[in-house]
Structure formats: C-alpha cells, structure tokens
Amino acid sequence: MFDKEYSFRGSHAAKVIKLTASFDQKNNKVFARNFDVYLLAPIVGFMYGRSAPIDRENNEKTDIFPDILIKNKNDLMFNYRLIMLLDKDYEPDFDERINKAFRYYGTEKAQPDEERYDSYVRGGVDVLYEKIMEGAKKPDDYLKNLYDFIEEFEERYNSSVSTDSILNLCKLARS
C-alpha cells in the first residue's frame, strides 16, 4: 500500500474528477490533484463515520501515480495509523489496534486493515462530494459550500480541540 498506483473507480472516480475540475475561468479547483483528495478523504470518511465499497457499476477510473504516493508516504502512513489506532468498531482491543497501526502494515495480516482504510477513503469521497459539489451551479457556490463545510467541521469537532492541548499530550507521551 502507498507504493503502487492507486485508482478511484466508478462513481468515486466520477466524483474525484469533479472535485478536481476547474470551476471558474481562472482555472481554480477545489482540490488541486487526485492525491489531495486521497490524502483528505480517509480522515473525513472516518470522522463522518462513512465507508463505502468499491463501485463497479461502470468502468470509470482515475489514477494516482506511484511516485507521488511514495513521495508522500509519511503523510499517508500518518492517516493509516490514526485510523487504525482509533477504529474501535473494527478492533476493540487497544493493543491489537497498536499492532495494526505500527506492526502489521505491509504484512499479509494487514490485508483486511488496508481494505478497511480504503473503504474510509471512498466514504470520504462521498462526503466531500456531497458537502462541496452538490447544489453548486456557479463558481461562488463551490467556494461557499467549501467554507460552510469547514465551518461546520470547526463547530462540530475542532473548536473543542486546541493545538496547545495536542502539544501538551505530545509532551506527556514523550515523558
């Protein structure tokens, strides 16, 4: 995982294509690249509790080349570890979740975990599409939707999480 080509398929490919399309004459796009969707989607999918199976309804497909995945492997691994550590529904035992996050990656054992991770990627694509693209007709709409989405997220989750609290926890963990 994260070192060979990745493809969005079916409806998810269609949504990713729209999320990365220019919406105004100045060539502005909500997401600059497929990779940027791929980087954010699993987080959003997990936070909104949305996962989705691979859509094989049609042959649509859009790819991310391996070089960009390899280059950004650390960021992708970070996502993977976060989800593995926090997905209690998937694995109730914390020690086992730690193993999934730090030990099993890249082994046979990690196959279902990686599958789980990908389903969050797809669920996240669905959420991003619903939040940002749906109902937008003119350039201003995309921007407004994006802003509303961030604002909603801020109110729902981030307003209660200060950067300082994270930094304190980091200190605590290291001591």
Binding site: F31, L39, I43, M47, R81, I83, L85, F153, Y157, L169
Partner: peptide, 22 residues
C-alpha cells in the same frame, strides 16, 4: 485548504489517539 486540510481535519483524531496512547 489543499496545503493544510489533512492536518486540520485530523486534529481531533490526533488528540484522541495521543490520549489513548498516553
């Protein structure tokens, strides 16, 4: 947005994970 989305959206997850780990 593109440069910092991951960091921003993962904030809550980071906090939860760090809490568990500590």
């Amino acid at each position: 947005f593109n440069n910092n989305a991951q960091q921003y959206f993962a904030k809550k997850m980071m906090k939860d994970a760090l809490q568990l780990l500590s």
